[in-house]
Design a protein around this nucleic acid. Structure first.
Lengths: 215, 215
DNA sequence: CAACTGAACGTACGATCGGTCGCATGGTTT
DNA sequence: AAACCATGCGACCGATCGTACGTTCAGTTG
């Protein structure tokens, strides 16, 4: 489906193009996608259904369909919304702290909150969906993988800064970021399974990474 | 619905109980479940369907249904079959090696083979399904969680033996097992996503765990 | 022999799925 | 004014889902 972006080529349109129809559509899309993120964190992006979404929100199924076209588009929009929510809840607060160990601790703290808290009722969005799509090529898988890759790169960069600042022993930042990311995902699963000691365990792993030689 | 699985109670063992109907049924169950494991590793246990399974194997949908009763029973049987295959492919070979570092290396080697190789076409069975069911209470979730817990306990015990044998620095075996398990699961996902350097990375993590003080 | 049992099939059911079509509404453009 | 467009709805389609029921057949048991 070609989006409506293509024919936005007026010659001299000094007007800010406040088409109220588009505004209304965008608003509807937002409320739908907001609910879709919750559902997808519980049942997965595959478990999303246009009909369920519509009845949950008191809309018509075809109304939802006209706004997203295909189910894959809905999945992509949902993943993108989840990504933005994740950045707002985890990444952005950490950028306030100075890069290095301090920022890393904020990142992990916010991440733990994010995994526990009611941001998504089903826990970590990517833990639930990456496993579903990792064997299913397509744009959805690509989007999920891209985000997870970005997240890991952020961890690695922050780790590198921590090492350069002497806040951690010299280590392979990429390897350590991979480990940290793995532990976070496993922590999310453990939390979902009811292992209440998962959070302090994750914190201990981070402590071990940040100060491994002193032991 | 009490299933016929429980009453495998040979009251008098001298009777061979060679009911050919039961044998035939057991054989059919095995072939069905064998295929179901493959499908579930790709599409997940939720993605299993009686109809698809039946047509794939040239059976009738109701035939499959009579053998398993409900879909949940089919999922449980599939998870159990996957568990057995996993034990055969990963755990059993490692039990030949002496417990400690040697066994741990065999475990990880076999696990990497298991994740890469065509044992399950969709990669690690639990990586694909635990994430699906961790927010969905029920017997299927319990079975998956139990297996994963057993696996982690096995890792922890072997790590403990390695420490006692002086093959690794004194460390919290449970914590290290959690980390190792997390890294293995993340390695599976990375492999599925096409990161070809995932295997040496996992090996480096294990090396780091087994010999952290000698550096 | 008759009575019973499990495997397997065929059929049918209600529900839900993603998707298409037509139509009405109201805001935008010309 | 007319032409156009995005939204949203209702009805409908073909497919598939899990499940239930009845029946047939082969093997077991009395």
């Amino acid at each position: 489906m070609s989006e409506a972006v293509s024919d936005q080529r007026p010659v001299s349109d000094q007007r800010p193009v406040a088409d109220q129809r588009l505004l209304r559509g965008a608003r509807s899309r937002r409320t739908i996608v907001r609910h879709a993120v919750d559902v997808a964190s519980l049942k997965g992006l595959t478990g999303l259904s246009l009909g369920r979404l519509a009845t949950d929100l008191g809309l018509s199924k075809s109304g939802v369909q006209t706004l997203f076209g295909t189910k894959e588009n809905l999945q992509l929009a949902t993943a993108e919304a989840a990504r933005r929510a994740f950045v707002d809840a985890v990444v952005r607060p950490a950028l306030a702290a100075p890069s290095g160990a301090a920022r890393l601790r904020v990142l992990v703290d916010r991440w733990v909150d994010y995994a526990q808290a009611p941001l998504f009722p089903g826990g970590c969005f990517w833990s639930a969906n990456l496993a579903d799509f990792d064997s299913r090529p397509g744009p959805v898988r690509d989007a999920l993988a891209r985000h997870q890759r970005d997240w890991r790169d952020l961890l690695a960069g922050t780790l590198r800064d921590a090492v350069e600042a002497g806040e951690a022993a010299s280590l392979d930042a990429d390897l350590a970021a991979f480990q940290l990311d793995a532990v976070l995902l496993a922590t999310n699963t453990a939390l979902r399974l009811g292992e209440d000691d998962a959070v302090p365990r994750a914190r201990r792993v981070l402590d071990g990474l940040l100060a491994p030689p002193v032991r």
